[in-house]
Simulated assay, not measured.
Amino acid sequence: MLKRNPRVRAVAVVTAAVVGLAGCDAVGGDSPGPTGTPARQAKPSASPSSLWDASPASVAAVGDSITRGFDACGILTDCPEVSWATGASSEVNSLAVRLLGKARAATHSWNYAATGARMADLPGQMARAAARRPGLVTVMAGANDACRASPEAMTPVADFRADFERAMSTLRRTAPSAQVYVASVPNLKRLWSQGRTNPLGKQVWKLGVCPSMLGDADALDSAATLRRATVQRRVEDYNRVLSQVCAKDRRCRFDDGAVYEYRFGTDQLSHWDWFHPSKNGQARLAEIAYRHVTAKAD
């Protein structure tokens, strides 16, 4: 747990600087790596063993603030060195480090994710990743499509699908043999249930963190319950899209809802905003990814 004084300072800094920790416009995104639910209804794409290499030669990451390590090291700042996908931190032991080794990961992994990115930003990120001709591309996107000012502002499912299909097509035009690991969108309602137990977290949320789910965190009336349920259903719809689109590509693996179903506790949440993964949470995401990337094909 953080000491009291840094927490007080954190609230002051956030109050002065916050423009929305989730559901904002994308910023950043070009760093080398080292410097039973609806989500599970569709099975991961069955990639024949001849097409899936559990030891890719390089890794590129696309997505949003989670892959940038946002708020894992300090307030309102990216920390790509602790990214679950490409970070060099020994506390996280990222997917790239696990697959390539630390020395090779330093020169053969790249992080093109951007804080605040939505699925509409993925085709552009994927174009940059494809230019590297990576052995594996990791995808984690969708939380910001649900984390909007209101449920009505969430990305329509049809648009989400079209943007993801466009991102995959963009990759295939330049890097037809690249493998893709797709992580499910986290369970935002569970993040609400965990973070709302912390007074500081609720104060930070009031400043614009995923308002569609986290707004009025203590409200349990019918309107608030319906709002959260609406957001949760949209997240489940997004995960269904990720699974279905991935299943059409013989070199793509969906995580079968593993990230969505992971029971993030307070130790796995940033103690700056009680929403993004902490270093511990990033390590758990790396474990999940490594398990799915190296699993034998059915």
Rank of each mutant, 00 (worst) to 15 (best):
A42R: 10
S50G: 09
S47P: 10
R128A: 15
G87H: 07
S50T: 12
A103K: 15
S89H: 04
A42F: 08
L95S: 07
A88M: 05
Y112M: 02
A39T: 15
A88S: 14
G69Q: 00
C73V: 09
G124C: 07
P123F: 05
A117E: 09
R68C: 03
S109F: 02
T67Y: 03
L76N: 15
N111A: 05
K43H: 12
A85V: 06
P123Y: 06
S89Q: 07
T35Y: 12
S31G: 07
S109G: 10
A117R: 13
P44M: 06
G116M: 09
I66A: 10
S83Y: 03
A114M: 11
V62D: 04
D71F: 04
A114Y: 14
W84M: 00
L51R: 13
F70N: 03
A114L: 08
D71L: 05
A54N: 13
L76A: 13
A54Y: 06
F70I: 00
P32E: 09
V82W: 01
P56L: 06
Y112V: 01
K102H: 09
T107F: 01
P32Q: 02
R98P: 14
M119D: 09
D64Y: 04
V97E: 12
E81W: 01
S94L: 00
A85K: 07
M119S: 13
R40T: 13
P80T: 02
S50C: 09
V62S: 05
G29K: 02
P44C: 07
A106K: 15
S94Y: 07
M126S: 02
T86Y: 10
T37A: 08
G33Y: 00
S55W: 01
L76F: 08
V82F: 01
A120M: 05
L99Y: 07
S109L: 07
S55Q: 13
D71H: 11
I66Q: 11
A61P: 09
G33P: 04
T86V: 14
A117G: 15
F70K: 05
V97C: 14
S109C: 01
N111F: 00
S31L: 06
L76T: 02
L99D: 08
D30S: 14
S31Q: 05
S89L: 11
P80K: 03
P56S: 04
V62F: 10
S58G: 01
T107R: 14
L76D: 13
G69F: 00
Y112G: 04
L76I: 13
G28P: 04
T86W: 02
W52I: 02
L99E: 05
A117P: 13
S55I: 02
S109K: 03
T77W: 00
G28K: 00
A61K: 01
G28I: 04
S109A: 08
C73Y: 08
T67S: 05
A120H: 14
A117F: 12
S47Y: 03
D64P: 06
A96E: 10
